[in-house]
């Protein structure tokens, strides 16, 4: 029993353990509180348009005229909703095949060039700030479209092209991961049956990785949907549904960006903008939900 005294060491480590537990817990708690207060504040502001100012929900969602300063003021947000959906979905339609091709190139055709050259290219594309995309869109794509097509060059076409570049890295990265994680036997089996590379890709690889590809595309759409400044710079900002892809229009984010600073907090004009923000937030939930659902399917 000679060591029994040694064993009764003081226990400063208990206090230390507590410090670690409490510190990390406070950090995560901060995160949780932040997100819940975000949802709460944006929702209460966004809903006050309907509750306090008595604007009809249906009018806001389906109305075609946005005239906050009109007499009477009109809050039809459908043009913005239409603008957001059309630009982001069109961007995904442009970017998805490009991303898939790049992924096939990086995984199947030339992993070496893929790793040493395309990988950094994609990462750099992801690193370019959105205002720079907006600037290039404004000074290259818009003038180009103005020369080629009727109209001012701004609009859904310019917006979705800029967005396509911005979401390309997301789509490519996820597609690449999906292709790279395919079991080797799957492709070899197809080659062994005499199928060509292309047959293998569209008969075996594409169907098997489809849920993952979809995840990438939805993530891309979600990012495009929430992007504000780059779109705002090239979309034209007219508050109506355009007749062509090359006509000035608006999105939810561009409307918020432009008008939030020019309206007084608490006014109905301001609250209506918060309602747009609420729509944006609810769409984020929808996107997260879809992505979770797709990821659940991927595991099966």
């Amino acid at each position: 029993m000679k060591k029994s005294n040694d064993r009764e060491v003081a226990t400063p480590h208990l206090a230390e353990e507590w410090v670690g537990k409490v510190y990390t817990f406070i950090c995560i708690l901060f995160l949780i509180i932040t997100i819940f207060s975000m949802v709460y504040f944006v929702a209460s502001k966004g809903l006050s348009t309907f509750i306090v100012n008595g604007v009809n929900v249906k009018d806001l969602l389906t109305g075609l005229k946005w005239k906050p300063d009109g007499e009477p003021p009109m809050f039809g947000a459908l043009p913005f909703i239409f603008g957001s959906f059309s630009t982001s979905i069109l961007a995904a339609i442009i970017a998805a095949p490009l991303g898939f091709c790049a992924a096939v190139f990086m995984v199947e055709l030339s992993p070496k060039i893929g790793r040493t050259f395309m990988q950094p290219v994609i990462e750099l594309l992801a690193g370019i700030p959105s205002v720079v995309y907006g600037f290039v869109g404004l000074s290259v794509i818009v003038p180009l479209f103005r020369d080629l097509f009727p109209g001012q060059g701004v609009g859904i076409a310019a917006g979705s092209l800029v967005l396509a570049f911005m979401i390309l890295p997301t789509i490519t990265t996820i597609a690449t991961d999906a292709l790279a994680s395919l079991p080797a036997g799957l492709k070899e089996g197809s080659y062994a049956l005499g199928a060509t590379r292309w047959q293998t890709i569209y008969r075996i690889v594409l169907p098997t990785t489809l849920p993952a590809q979809m995840t990438g595309i939805v993530l891309g759409i979600a990012r495009a949907f929430g992007e504000a400044l780059a779109v705002q710079m090239v979309i034209g900002n007219a508050p109506h549904i355009p007749n062509s892809l090359f006509e000035s229009t608006s999105t939810l984010t561009s409307a918020i960006t432009l008008s939030m600073g020019n309206t007084a907090m608490g006014s109905v004009q301001n609250n209506a903008l918060w309602s747009l923000a609420l729509i944006l937030m609810l769409m984020t939930f929808v996107f997260v939900f879809i992505i979770r659902w797709l990821e659940g399917r991927k595991k099966l």
Binding site: K3, S4, R7, V9, T11, H13, L14
Partner: peptide, 19 residues
């Protein structure tokens, strides 16, 4: 471990592992 129950629910595991 001598007179200490290692698997007790209130055992100070950190101090124990030193031994």
């Amino acid at each position: 471990l001598k007179d200490q129950n290692i698997n007790g629910s209130d055992t100070d595991v950190v101090a124990l592992r030193k031994n």
